[in-house]
Design a protein around this nucleic acid. Structure first.
Lengths: 225, 225
DNA sequence: ACAGCGGAAATTGCATACAATTTGGCGCTC
DNA sequence: GAGCGCCAAATTGTATGCAATTTCCGCTGT
C-alpha cells in the first residue's frame, strides 16, 4: 500500500522510507495497536538499523497523522478518542463527497467508462457475497473517484484519511446485508457522476460514506457487547 | 505563524522544530524562492547547528508539501507549476466551501455572533481602504470559519492549503476595488452561515475563493507585463 | 568544437557517540 | 501508610564521523 507522498518513495528507497512504510504497515495491520509506544531503540534493533533513520521515519509518520510525537516524550501510535474518530469520519465523508463532486465535473469520458465498468464488476461480487474481494474492489472504486477529481492535493488528503480510518472499517462488509446495500449506494453515486450532476454526486457520496460510519458504530457496538 | 501540527510545537520546542519553523518562514516570506536548493550543510551552518536536526526538519516540511525531497538528490523549495498552482487553488476553494458548509451546520450561537462581529469590523476596514489591516482581518475571518466547522482534520488541512498559497495571494488586496468586493462576498457567506443554510454557504464561499484565484491571475498577468 | 568519459569534490545517507531530559523507584519524612 | 524529594536508568535530542552516491569539471578522442 502506498503510504508516503508519491514523490518520496521512488524506486530507490532509502532506509528511512522503507522504515516508514514498514511501521505504517504495522499500524494499519493492527500489529501496532493504537496507543502503543514506539521506542526508537527497539524499532532500530528490530529492523537492524541505527536510530537515525528510525527517527526520520517517525517524523514523517507524525506529519501524516498516523503517529503522535511529543518533544522528549517519544512517539505513540495515534489513538483516536471517540470524538477524534467522529471528526475523522466526518472529514472523510466531506472529502469523498468533494471528490465525487469534482469527478462529476471533470472526469473524462474514459474515466467515466472505467468507473462504470468497475461498478458493474462490483455488482457481481456483491451478489456472490465475497466480502474480501468486494473490499478490495471497493478501495479501487473509491480511489478511482479520487483520481477522477483530477486534483492531486485533494486526492492525496482523502486517501490519507481513508488509510487512517482503515483499521476501523476493516470488518464492515461482514455485517449482514452491508454488501448489497453498499452496492446500491454506489449505484446512485455512479449514476450522478456519469450524468455530470455535481450536486447529486456530492449528496449521494455523503450519504454512502455516512452509512459506512453508521455501520462501523453498529459493528463496534456489537463487538463491545 | 503556526507552521507545524499543533501537538508538535509545544512550549518546549526542539531544535528540529525551531528549524522547521524558521525554514518554513523563509519560504513563506519569499526569502527562499520556489526552486531554491536547500543544502543541509549551509542550513546547518546558518543556524549554528549540526545536520541532524536540519535533516529532520526538512523531512517534516517535505510531508507538509512545502518542499520536495528526492532520495540522494536533496531538497528544494516546492516550485508549483501553473497546473499545480491551479490544483491548489481549486483544492482551497473546495475546502473553504466545505468548512463553510459545516460551519453553517455546526457553529454555536456564540461562534455565529463572533463571526458576525468580525465581519462588521472588516466592513469598516474595507471602507477605510487599509489593505494590510484588511488582509490580517481576512485571515482571521477565514480561520474563524475553519474553526467553526468543528473538525480538526479539515481545519488543519485547509489552513495548510491557505499557507501554501499565501505567497501567491499576498498582494491581491492591492488590486483596485478588490477590498470592497471581497467584503461584499463575505457578506453573502456570513448571511448563509448565520441562517444555517449549508448549501448557500458552500456556494457563496466557492464563489468568493474562486474570485480570489481570478484576482491572483489578473494580478500576476499585470505584473508579468 | 563537441560528445563521451574518468575522477575528484560535494552532498546525502547512515551509524555511533555524547549530552540533556524524562521516568521510575528508593528511601525518607510526616 | 501516603506523599515527597532525590538519584539512577532509560530515552530522546544533537553532534560528529564515515560510507555511498551524485555532481561537476577537465580530459581525451573523433
Amino acid at each position: 500500500m502506498k503510504i508516503l507522498r508519491p514523490d518520496m518513495q521512488a524506486e530507490n528507497p532509502t532506509l528511512t522510507e522503507k522504515l516508514a512504510s514498514a511501521i505504517a504497515d504495522g499500524i494499519l495491520n493492527g500489529a501496532l495497536a493504537p496507543g502503543s509506544r514506539l521506542d526508537e531503540i527497539s524499532l532500530a534493533q528490530q529492523h537492524g538499523v541505527s536510530r537515525t533513520p528510525v527517527r526520520e521515519a517517525l517524523r514523517q509518520l507524525a506529519m501524516s497523522g498516523l503517529i503522535d510525537m511529543r518533544p522528549r516524550k517519544g512517539a505513540v501510535v495515534s489513538k483516536a478518542t471517540p470524538e477524534e474518530l467522529e471528526s475523522l469520519f466526518v472529514a472523510m465523508a466531506e472529502m469523498e463527497a468533494t471528490c465525487a463532486r469534482l469527478a462529476a465535473m471533470s472526469m473524462t469520458p474514459i474515466d467515466r467508462r472505467r468507473l462504470q465498468a468497475r461498478h458493474e464488476a462490483m455488482t457481481t461480487l456483491a451478489a456472490a457475497g465475497d466480502p474480501d474481494a468486494y473490499s478490495d474492489a471497493n478501495n479501487a472504486f473509491h480511489s478511482a473517484i479520487y483520481a477522477g477529481a483530477h486534483n492531486a492535493p485533494l486526492a492525496e488528503f482523502t486517501l490519507g484519511l481513508r488509510r487512517r480510518l482503515g483499521p476501523f472499517r476493516r470488518a464492515q462488509f461482514r455485517m449482514e446485508g452491508r454488501l448489497t446495500r453498499s452496492n446500491q449506494e454506489h449505484e446512485a453515486v455512479v449514476r450522478a457522476i456519469l450524468a455530470g450532476d455535481a450536486v447529486a454526486a456530492h449528496a449521494a457520496m455523503i450519504h454512502h460514506v455516512s452509512l459506512v460510519e453508521d455501520a462501523y458504530e453498529a459493528f463496534s457496538a456489537i463487538n463491545a457487547a
